[in-house]
Amino acid sequence: MGDVTLFGVAGAVLAGLGVYGLIASPQPLRKILALNVLGTGVFLLFGVVARRGAAAGLGADPVPQALVITGIVVAFAATALAVALTLALTRAAGSASLESDAPAVGEDPGPPR
């Protein structure tokens, strides 16, 4: 197994784990972690792409590296925002559950603003 393939498989496994966690974990914090695992898998994919681009004659294709850096920054910002929201939700509601917010018909869930 070449190292490119290994990277690819690792990326796919991480992405799969992330998707599973996203579906199965009820806790927002775990979902945030799952999203990060999924994101890492995708970033690895970019690594594979950079390596394959290198085969064309360049030492390494720099563009995917630049994309990954940007992606990591975005993911970091997203994680920070999501954690901040989770904290605020825990403070306001006592727990951070995502369900139970679907207001049933006929019920007035209170003022929207």
Binding site: V19, L22, I23, A24, L98, E99
Partner: peptide, 19 residues
């Protein structure tokens, strides 16, 4: 339709639908 909507809007259902 409202009842079906409540089911579809559960998190696991929606994420599975996305995939």
């Amino acid at each position: 339709a409202v009842a079906a909507d409540a089911v579809l809007r559960r998190w696991p259902a929606a994420t599975l639908l996305l995939v």
